[in-house]
């Protein structure tokens, strides 16, 4: 009886260890996927920042061009005698 109880205890410990290892494996998988997700988010933030920076630069250039055009149109409209023959 004592031998059988020792075997069952060993089996139970083995099952518990196996379950523990399975749990650890599951947690490692989950953590790995979360890290991948984090890496993806960091990379996505960088690419989005660069794209937004390029868009901001384009908008700045467009605004400057528009300001220049406004000034030129203002000067041309201030001297209408230039266009009257």
């Amino acid at each position: 009886m004592a031998r059988a109880g020792g075997i069952t205890n060993a089996v139970n410990v083995g099952i518990a260890v196996q379950a523990d290892w399975e749990n650890r494996e599951f947690i490692s998988h989950i953590s790995l996927n979360v890290r991948r997700l984090f890496d993806f988010l960091v990379q996505f933030e960088a690419t989005t920042k660069s794209k937004l920076a390029s868009l901001n630069e384009k908008l700045d250039t467009l605004e400057r061009r528009l300001e220049l055009l406004e000034v030129q149109v203002g000067t041309a409209s201030a001297n209408p005698s230039l266009f009257t023959s």
């Binding site: 690419t47 989005t48 794209k51 937004l52 868009l55 384009k58 908008l59 467009l62 061009r65 528009l66 055009l69 030129q72 149109v73 041309a76 266009f83």
Partner: peptide, 27 residues
């Protein structure tokens, strides 16, 4: 990404600005 990569509006605005610039030069 779709919203950021859509630069058709910017290209259209750039074309309009170039057109206005050309008109001012001709004037």
């Amino acid at each position: 990404n779709c919203l950021v990569s859509e630069t058709n509006a910017f290209s259209a605005a750039e074309l309009r600005i170039n057109c206005l610039k050309q008109r001012l030069l001709s004037c």
